[in-house]
């Protein structure tokens, strides 16, 4: 078990290093000059621009810049924002709680709605719940968040005036963005759980359970659900990652504070240090979520547990 975890941690580190390198390369290859977005080239002399470039290390060769970049990361120095020149790390950390809160709330909605609706629709196949589940599944995976977000604003804020359309203070402002973001995840989770639950209910061991005289509740929710969750957990992990990525759009649509929001701004301004810092932060979260997924496998499926031993 310990072995399995340690090998997971090592591969996670590789993922983080890989994603950081990738971001660096993308920005390196991208046309355009960050210095030119910092100063107005018509009013500043070329020497000043050259000087600024040198200060930022932009005139050094690729490998030196890459090494320096990793060196800085290791020492916790994420540099300063090119645009606002404030340190990157505190700037990001200040926004992390808001984004995490949104992601967690969305994930909660996605999992709660997705799993319960998926299971019920499989158990009562062909019934009303099954119909609702299929509608949720269809809309969830086919509606982009910026559209469902705007739709929610129109209905609940503009028409019904029940919930605030924007802002990021208080519980009320969290509801609409979390629903918009969670709905996407719920759509895929419903479909997956429904399908895998139906598969499990067709397994021979379910017949054994019934032949033993167990109650249907025990057959469905104790036995079948546990096996059905095994493939669903993978998907849930991926969905949470997607939701984290989705905050970029949702935070913009609902004018919320958050990492996604500053990421969007930083990309527009080619603010490399900020983008790198956020990628670093996101990669760690992503990898952490996947690690949790792997561990929860072991909790659900004893076969995984024993294999590691």
């Amino acid at each position: 078990m310990l072995q399995a975890i340690s090998s997971r941690v090592i591969s996670s580190l590789l993922v983080i290093v890989g994603s950081l390198t990738l971001v660096f390369c993308i920005f390196y290859l991208l046309p355009g000059d960050p210095v030119l977005s910092m100063v107005d080239p018509t009013s500043v002399s070329p020497e000043v621009i050259e000087n600024l470039r040198h200060q930022l290390g932009l005139d050094r060769p690729f490998h030196e810049r890459l090494l320096a970049y990793f060196g800085d990361m290791l020492t916790g120095d994420f540099g300063r924002s090119i645009v606002g020149s404030e340190p990157v790390l505190p700037k990001i950390l200040a926004q992390v709680p808001a984004t995490l809160l949104l992601t967690a709330a969305s994930a909660l909605i996605a999992v709660a709605v997705g799993v319960s609706l998926g299971v019920l629709s499989a158990v009562r196949k062909g019934g009303i719940i099954d119909f609702v589940a299929r509608v949720v599944g269809l809309f969830g995976i086919s509606m982009p968040t910026f559209w469902s977000g705007i739709l929610l604003i129109l209905i609940f804020s503009v028409q019904l005036r029940l919930l605030p359309a924007m802002g990021s203070d208080g519980f009320a402002t969290l509801i609409l963005p979390a629903v918009a973001l969670g709905f996407v995840g719920a759509g895929s989770i419903v479909r997956m759980v429904r399908g895998s639950m139906l598969d499990v209910l067709n397994e021979p061991f379910v017949t054994t359970l019934r032949a033993k005289g167990l109650r249907e509740g025990s057959v469905n929710y104790k036995h079948a659900l546990r096996s059905a969750l095994i493939p669903a957990v993978t998907l849930i992990g991926m969905q949470i990652g997607d939701m984290l990525a989705g905050t970029v759009i949702i935070e913009t649509v609902f004018s919320r504070q958050g990492v996604g929001r500053i990421l969007a701004d930083a990309i527009m301004a080619k603010d490399l240090p900020v983008v790198q810092g956020i990628v670093f932060f996101t990669a760690i979260l992503y990898v952490g979520i996947n690690l949790l997924v792997d561990l929860s496998y072991a909790a659900i499926d004893p076969r995984v547990r024993r294999k590691g031993a």
Binding site: P204, F205, T208, K212, H223, I300
Partner: peptide, 25 residues
Amino acid sequence: MRGIRGKRIAMIFQEPMAAFDPVFT
């Protein structure tokens, strides 16, 4: 009927591997 299954009539199956729930002891 549920009270009869597993009590007065019990059943065993073809594929013992598939007839047990794999995730419980």
